[in-house]
């Protein structure tokens, strides 16, 4: 377990900022308790400093997880967000997409979101913008990247892809072994 280097921090912050924008400061500069980012076995954990201090005393092979896993660094140094970061992303998300009940299952099986399943979308969403996916009852289901801006979606046919799938809560079951 170690703090992130500057390059790693940049990679993580850039990914998070695509979803939550300036709310990223809320994660770093928290009112209640100091939180920090820690790297352990290529995984980035967002953890309160008190828990992190407890974690220091655990030997490296024995430490499985702590706090919230935000994602992992690939071998080539890219950062990938995991579904476990959804709680924080949903809390601070700037752009949201709500999907109809009939679109929930296809999305939770790892498919992209089609226009037919689109319930609502935050006005003025740009192209290739990170968005958090909600069900119509405001339950966060996952996150992805828009393929078109809000305006352009109007012209599309119902089978066109609106949001590219990145992660969904179904991964808790599907990727149970590899997630942590």
């Amino acid at each position: 377990m170690r703090p992130l280097t500057e390059d790693e921090s940049k990679a993580v912050f850039a990914k998070l900022a695509n979803f939550i924008g300036k709310n990223l400061i809320q994660l770093i500069d928290r009112k209640d308790e100091p939180y920090c980012f820690r790297l352990h076995k290529d995984r980035v954990f967002y953890v309160s400093e008190s828990s992190m201090k407890l974690g220091i005393s655990v030997a490296r092979p024995n430490l499985v997880s702590m706090g919230t896993c935000f994602g992992k660094f690939s071998k080539s140094g890219k950062f990938k967000l995991h579904i476990t970061a959804l709680d924080y992303l949903a809390q601070y998300a700037k752009y949201k997409v709500w999907i109809k009940p009939n679109g929930e299952m296809p999305f939770l099986y790892g498919n992209h979101i089609l226009k037919a399943h689109l319930g609502r979308i935050t006005e003025d969403t740009a192209e290739h913008q990170g968005v958090v996916i909600f069900s119509m009852s405001d339950t966060p289901l996952g996150f992805g990247v828009t393929s078109r801006s809000t305006v352009d979606t109007r012209k599309l046919d119902p089978t066109a892809i609106i949001v590219f799938h990145q992660a969904d809560v179904g991964e808790y079951l599907r990727d149970e072994e590899t997630l942590i």
Binding site: M1, R2, P3, T5, E6, S9, K10, F13, L24, I25, I28, D29, P34, C36, F37, R38, E49, M52, K53, I56
Partner: peptide, 17 residues
């Protein structure tokens, strides 16, 4: 690498941001 504890990370993170 930086030590795991005893550093003020908030300031460095904010400056990176």
């Amino acid at each position: 690498f930086e030590p795991a504890e005893g550093i003020s990370e908030k300031d460095s993170s904010l400056s990176i941001l």
